[in-house]
Design a protein around this nucleic acid. Structure first.
Lengths: 106, 106
DNA sequence: TTTTACTACTTGACAAAGCCAAGTAGTGGG
DNA sequence: CCCACTACTTGGCTTTGTCAAGTAGTAAAA
């Protein structure tokens, strides 16, 4: 899969997933992977960055299957970011796909 | 507009435009701008890169309105790249949008 | 005829985001 | 005790887009 397409979209996907329920990093890697092929070294830095930007806050919870898990919870600011980014994605994607469709009908 | 969304997609757009007719750089900047906001400093490097990768060949033509224009013409290799990238975009975009739709219906 | 505006192309320094690989740790089973 | 699995971190790298500045050609205004 073209790596470049993912730029920016992974952030949106993570925001959308965390909009419903808090999740920990490793779990998120698996969730996101269902949508687009991705690996740990990509998701953890996104989580760190978005936490720095106050879109998430985090808390630790112990686990029976391994080390403690760091859960990510969407803040109101993160929720706003989610809405904004989603809107931008829709505009972008619509515009590109309209163009593509136009090209194909010729 | 989110800069990151454009990554990779601009290449696809340029390939699709040049699939129909040869165009020169400045003209392409204007064409692409109709679809997504973009400026010269972005398009020219793409043209250079894709020319290096043998997706285009180029020729000069004089102009009455200014300096000579460098036209870009899609090669068979470029045409293959166009088809491949388009296919990848469709898979990617479909997958992301299906996920988004799923999130919204809850 | 000099200046201005528009067309047209180039390039260097930079920033953002994803990738890869390696490393650290905790838990539980063989 | 070692291995497998879960879980998180990080450093160096690559790709691609952005910004800004620069070079030039043509033509019309001043």
């Amino acid at each position: 899969m073209d790596t470049q397409f993912k730029k920016g979209v992974l952030e949106l996907i993570v925001l959308l997933i965390l909009n419903k329920t808090d999740k920990y990093g490793y779990e998120l890697v698996e969730e996101v992977s269902k949508i687009v092929n991705v690996n740990e070294g990509t998701i953890y830095p996104i989580l760190k960055r978005l936490t720095n930007e106050k879109y998430f806050d985090t808390y630790l919870k112990e686990s029976k299957e391994g080390p403690p898990r760091k859960y990510y919870h969407l803040t109101p600011l993160g929720n706003k970011r989610k809405r904004d980014l989603l809107k931008e994605w829709k505009i972008f994607e619509t515009s590109v796909n309209k163009f593509i469709k136009g090209e194909e009908n010729e």
